[in-house]
Amino acid sequence: MSALGELGSLRGKKPAGQLPDRGGGAGKVYKKDNLAAYLFLAPWLLGLFLITIGPMLASLYLSFTDYNLIQAPQWIGLENFTRMLSDERLHNSLRVTFTYVFVSVPLQLAVALLLAVVLDRGVRGMAFYRSVFYLPSLLGSSVAIAILWRQVFGTEGLLNQVLALVGIDGKGWISDPSTALGTLVVLNVWTFGSPMVIFLAGLRQIPTMYYEAAAVDGAGVLGRFFRITLPLLTPIIFFNLVLQIIHAFQSFTQAFVVSGGTGGPSDSTMFFTLYLYDRGFGNFDMGYASAMAWFLLVIIGAFTAANFFASKYWVFYDD
């Protein structure tokens, strides 16, 4: 069979299970291997039980209490959860968070994927560009970010200076409640380095023979991208999507730093986690904050489960 023949059916390969629970490209069924598996898992299990589960369950317990961090928690049943129903600032924070997730995640992933593909092959000096494009992500949660962002989006910032050149009156992008969230989306897209690196690593795992075969067949850039790169990269796209959604739901630092911890102006950048933090550490209401955290966990869990479910239809594994 020719190399060309191999390519077209990538999309038609067996669907991936929701979990890596079945083996066998050729349909072999692997037998259980409990001893080896649990040995490999031992460090993780140890960490899970000694470090992760305790605090998680403690926070679950605290979500049913009135706990001000200083005095002992008092059991109050579901009160924290019923309070969430009527908390308008919480509802607002959900709106802000969902908007942010749905706008910034696809944008960031698209930019990261585009840049990764462009930088992967064929451009001389790509190592240089890769590093340059990654540089903003290095700044991470640095205090400098708050200052830098004002320098760009403030009333006298770079953006307004550029707009003034073409005769447009700018505005205070960070301080106007209608645009503040937008600047955080830009900030998130600006730090697309992490998903880009993961895409790059993924691209490197695609055997070059596929491309060689496509070249023999005369496939163009777009053809190669859509017929080879994209399908073979789906496990990585899936990974990035799942993680970036989780990450975006938990987004905290950037809004915290840029708004000086207030979620302002007018709560327009009050992310769910920022409000949670504000309740927990600002208002000493750790019981309520814990309840919020578990509510968020349910939301993120639902999204992740939906993602895994949908992955059956579009993610292709090579195993």
Binding site: A36, W44, L276, M286
Partner: peptide, 30 residues
């Protein structure tokens, strides 16, 4: 282990692993 080995409780453990990424740090830090 998760990617290649078959073992009892795999799905459960995998789900727990994912769950552990989802809780915001601020409530577990104390």
């Amino acid at each position: 282990a998760f990617a290649r080995l078959e073992f009892t409780g795999k799905k459960l453990w995998f789900a727990i692993m994912l769950l552990s990424i989802m809780l915001p740090i601020h409530v577990v830090i104390v």
